[in-house]
């Protein structure tokens, strides 16, 4: 599903070059649930952005579903993200002017699905994630945990093969955080959803099948849980 080989990422800040990733090798198979952990500045987010086709590596190769994503045009990368990758962001990133239902069906709409089907899919997804009664609520009317569940529903509504979660529990209390990770765990077990989770909390990361620790832009260690 994901194959990283010798991936480097160097940011240029004027004359200063910052090595965010230093030769990362990683393989994630379909149905894996992998957590990436490490302290701030270890390169977790940079790695997620490269896997999520949001950024390009400076050196090395990145294959997702056997596609060399670095070789794709910007338009193709956008289409690839729409069809193949679901994102869950730290700050929920819901559109405040849309209801929960509308936020969820945006990816369906982007994929060209008709309105009726969009609503049906979004409703089903909300039921599945236990927020079926919050259809017409706007983001500001939802708790942090509910907003993150809406965000997960939006990430999954196009049935992507890969779900990327970037610190999805960072803004939540411990109960809501556990709830969100449990949902991810359940999705992985029930529909074999491939998940890459970024977190700085070891206890949450340990709920994945495998943990990868980064330090100073390199893989420090890997462990199966």
């Amino acid at each position: 599903m994901i194959k990283l080989k010798g991936v480097h990422k160097v940011y240029s800040m004027g004359d200063v070059k910052v090595h965010a990733l230093r030769g990362i090798d990683m393989n994630v198979k379909k149905g894996d649930f992998v957590s990436i952990m490490g302290p701030s500045g270890s390169g977790k987010s940079t790695m997620l952005h490269i896997i999520g086709v949001l950024d390009r590596q400076t050196k090395g190769s990145v294959h997702i579903k056997s596609v060399d994503v670095a070789m794709m045009s910007d338009e193709d990368r956008t289409s690839f993200r729409l069809k193949e990758i679901g994102f869950v962001f730290q700050f929920y990133s819901l559109l405040p002017e849309l209801t929960a239902l509308e936020n969820i069906f945006i990816p369906n709409m982007l994929a060209g699905m008709n309105g009726k089907q969009c609503r049906k899919n979004a409703r089903e997804m909300m039921e599945k994630l236990g927020i079926g009664e919050r259809l017409s609520n706007y983001p500001h009317q939802l708790s942090g945990g509910e907003q993150q569940r809406v965000s997960i529903a939006r990430a999954l509504v196009n049935k992507p093969e890969l779900l990327l979660a970037d610190e999805p529990t960072a803004s939540l209390d411990s109960k809501s955080a556990m709830n969100v990770i449990s949902i991810l765990r359940k999705l992985n077990e029930e529909i074999r959803q491939t998940i890459v989770l970024i977190t700085h909390e070891q206890s949450l990361g340990a709920l994945a099948d495998r943990g990868i620790w980064l330090k100073d832009g390199a893989v420090e260690r890997e462990k199966d849980f």
Binding site: G52, L54, D74, E75, T78, S79, R81, L82, K83, F87, F89, F91, S93, L95, P96, I106, P107, L110, A111, R154, A155, N158
Partner: peptide, 16 residues
């Protein structure tokens, strides 16, 4: 800015 970034991240083409 953030919402624009999110929409692009989840697959909205910049022309749209």
């Amino acid at each position: 800015r953030r919402i624009i970034g999110v929409l692009k991240a989840i697959g909205m083409q910049k022309n749209h």
